[in-house]
């Protein structure tokens, strides 16, 4: 669920590469469509629903899903589908922020560590060990509790807790590439270390880091939803996906309030995971 395990998953030798034919399988296509829809929801929510996410019709509280209200209504009579659609932007952007932090900070640490080696590697390596030693979700909880309960802080916390994973993967990849014959060849051809780093090492190392970033995007959505579920994100009336599940769970008689946003989270993350696997296999 948190970032730490993604590393082990990626490092475990070339998984289902048996069928790595070119061409896009139907599941990958569906995944891309799901992600496209999610992106459109977050950019133009008003195109997808006429209801307001904030103001409800008190006459229709806790209605079951119907043609008018696809996901039913909540205790204030607000359309749950509209709440989900309007909550998308915050859920998606915060996950992007988290991935960006992990990717930029982690890759930089990993790159410096793997390429420079020596004392720098030892120092940064210890730092990464320490980040890794605190269970990812607990670290995120502690950071968000220090920064304050806001979705953006939850995103930062999630990003920081993923730094170690990016750093480790980048370091491993850089070391792998750095030792290869073509990098040594570039020195023999008069290249210097910086040239080798920029033209040979990075282009060969970034790919699996990119796959991790995609995977991590899905994981971040879940971690941020979990933080929101615990109430560590923006308070209502904002409608982050995790928060919707959390506020829905009080109404035992209206399970759709939980299932609808939960389904959206699951579908999104599943699609992202599928795309990440497709990226990993289509080398």
């Amino acid at each position: 669920m948190s970032a730490d395990l993604n590393f082990a998953r990626l490092r475990s030798a070339g998984t289902a590469t048996l069928r790595s034919r070119a061409g896009i399988s139907p599941t990958v296509l569906v995944s891309f469509l799901v992600i496209l829809l999610v992106v459109l929801w977050s950019l133009f929510p008003s195109l997808f629903t006429g209801y307001s996410p904030v103001n409800g019709d008190t006459g229709s509280k806790l209605d079951a899903p119907s043609l008018q209200h696809w996901f039913g209504t909540d205790y204030l009579g607000r359309d749950q589908y509209a709440r989900v659609v309007y909550g998308t932007a915050s859920s998606v952007t915060s996950a992007l922020v988290a991935v960006a932090i992990g990717l930029v900070v982690g890759s930089t640490i990993g790159l410096a560590s793997g390429f420079r080696g020596g004392w720098l590697d030892a120092t940064l390596g210890r730092f990464v060990d320490v980040l890794l030693a605190i269970p990812g979700f607990l670290l995120a909880v502690v950071i968000v509790s220090s920064l304050g309960f806001q979705t953006i802080n939850a995103a930062i916390a999630t990003g920081v807790s993923a730094v170690a994973v990016f750093a480790r993967l980048m370091r491993a990849e850089v070391i792998r590439v750095r030792r290869s014959a073509f990098v040594e060849a570039s020195y023999l051809e008069g290249g210097n270390r910086l040239q080798a780093l920029l033209t040979h090492v990075l282009p060969n190392a970034y790919r699996s880091v990119l796959v991790l970033a995609v995977l991590q995007f899905g994981t971040s959505i879940m971690v941020i939803a979990s933080l929101a579920f615990l109430g560590y994100g923006d308070p209502p009336p904002s409608s982050d996906w995790g928060l919707l599940v959390a506020s829905g769970k009080t109404y035992v008689t209206a399970p759709w309030l939980v299932y609808a946003p939960a389904l959206v989270i699951v579908a999104t993350v599943l699609s992202i995971n599928r795309i990440s696997r497709w990226l990993r296999n289509s080398k």
Binding site: G218, S226, V245, L270, N273
Partner: peptide
Amino acid sequence: SFFLSVPNFVIGL
């Protein structure tokens, strides 16, 4: 892959 896509609060609920 499916297990990894379901947040554990959803599983619990």
